[in-house]
Amino acid sequence: MEHQQSQEPGNAERPPVSLPENYQEGLVVRPCLPSIPGILGIGPDQCIASHAPHEPIKEHLHAHFNHLHIRYGFEFPRQTLEGIRGLISPAVMMAIPVEQRVDCNPIFVARGGGAEGINLHIDGEEVHWVHHDEAGAQATELYEATGRKLPDGFYWSGFYMSDVEERKVRRFSREQLLRTIGLGLRADQHFQATWREPRDEPIEPYEVLICLTDDQTSYFTFFRLPIVVPIGTS
């Protein structure tokens, strides 16, 4: 693969990226803009939104604190998943300041009543995300393998897909994933960052680096979630 020199400051000597032979055998997931406005009161063009404490909203984790909404979309395109032989758990990791924690809502596949979302189920069971240090370490390794380093004061907070109680990592077989993805699965994801030790201080919005991958295959993708959606984005 031919290496493109980056113009980003601090990455001038980025080494070439070599992809493993089985790269295409992974669970392919692609980021995209969110498409379900109104969940948790977030408007259609908002991916990053800093809020002061406000009235409770059902499913909102940090309404009573200063918090930063982090919202994006993703798609599992139709795929054969021929490379999936064991059980795998999708993973998501995001780079946030060390003074903050980030917590997640379930995967929303549609708008429910009011500001609620309708959650993804796999084999009849609602799926959530659970914090996992290994996921954070995985993102650190994958990101640094591209020659990049996070800015000072940031770390990767990682999650694996979990049961509804957010206590146990859930892993899925190829057949389960095929049934779930079908002709393609499109969903919105909401996370909320807040101060690790609550402060009476607003959170300055920042661009969020996000990694989508899983705990077994070699597929991964990074993207940068902008504070403001660029004009012309579709």
């Binding site: 924690r101 996070l150 770390y155």
Partner: peptide, 24 residues
Amino acid sequence: QPFGWGALEPVWTHARSSSRGESH
């Protein structure tokens, strides 16, 4: 004490940043 927990001994509900293997 909703804010400013200095009067209490901190409880680390997440691993200390130095033990995360983070890159800064």
